[in-house]
Simulated scan of single mutants.
Amino acid sequence: MSDPHQPSPGQPYGAPPQYPTSAGGPPHPLTPPYPTSPVYAGLTEPGNPLGRIALLIAAITAGIGSLSGLIYPFLITRGGYGVVSVLSSVVALVVLIAGAVALVLGIIALRRPEPRLAAAIAVGIAGATVVAHLGGWAVNLAYTLL
C-alpha cells in the first residue's frame, strides 16, 4: 500500500490527509455548539418606550418646523403678510414647546438603564430644534433693536 503523503502521479502535492470521523461521538471541541433555533435578542427585550416617544415627538416637531418654512411663500401670495406672521409665530411657539418636551423626555430616557439609541437620537434632534428656534428668535430680536 502506498503512503498517503507521498505524491501520486495524478496529484503532485500528495493526497489530502484523511481525518478520522465518528458517527455517534461528541462534536469536535473546536466547533462551537449552535442552537437549533435562532434566538433574537431584539424580540425579547422590551426596549425604551420613553425614548421612542421622545424620538417620535422630536421627529414630528422637526418635520413641522421644516415644512412650515416651505409653506410660508405660498401663504404670502394667497393671504398676505398678516396671515403668515400670525401663523409663523404660532408654529414657532408650538415647535419650541414640543422640542423642549422631546428634549426633556429624551434626557430622562437616557438616564434609564434601558437601550438608549432612540433616546440619544431624540436628544440630538430636539436639541438642534430648540437651539435653532431660540437662535432665530434672538436674531430677530437683534434686528428689531438695531
Rank of each mutant, 00 (worst) to 15 (best):
I125S: 07
A120Y: 03
Y81G: 15
G14Q: 09
L75F: 14
H133T: 15
H5F: 12
Q11H: 15
I53R: 14
G42M: 05
V91E: 01
A92I: 02
G63P: 02
V101R: 05
P9W: 02
L56H: 08
G10P: 02
G14Y: 07
G63E: 00
P7E: 03
P29Y: 05
R78C: 01
L105E: 09
Y81N: 15
G127W: 00
A41L: 13
P73W: 10
I108Y: 02
Q18A: 15
P33G: 11
D3R: 08
R111K: 06
N48M: 07
A126W: 07
P73D: 07
D3E: 08
S88G: 11
A62H: 01
G106H: 08
A109T: 04
G82D: 11
S88C: 04
A15N: 14
P7N: 05
R78P: 01
L87D: 10
S22H: 10
A98R: 00
L70R: 12
Y19W: 08
G80V: 10
I53K: 13
P49K: 05
S8N: 05
Q18S: 14
A92S: 14
T129H: 00
I64Q: 00
P4G: 11
P33K: 06
P7F: 04
R116N: 05
L93K: 00
G106L: 05
W137M: 12
V91A: 09
I76D: 07
Y81S: 14
A100F: 09
L30K: 05
I64R: 00
R116T: 07
L93C: 01
P17D: 09
S8G: 10
T21H: 01
A54S: 12
P27F: 00
A98E: 03
L146S: 08
T61E: 05
P16D: 08
A118I: 01
L103T: 15
G65A: 04
A118R: 02
A100Y: 01
G80S: 09
V84W: 13
V123T: 15
Q11K: 14
A109D: 06
Y81Q: 15
Q18T: 15
L50T: 15
I57D: 03
I64T: 11
N48S: 10
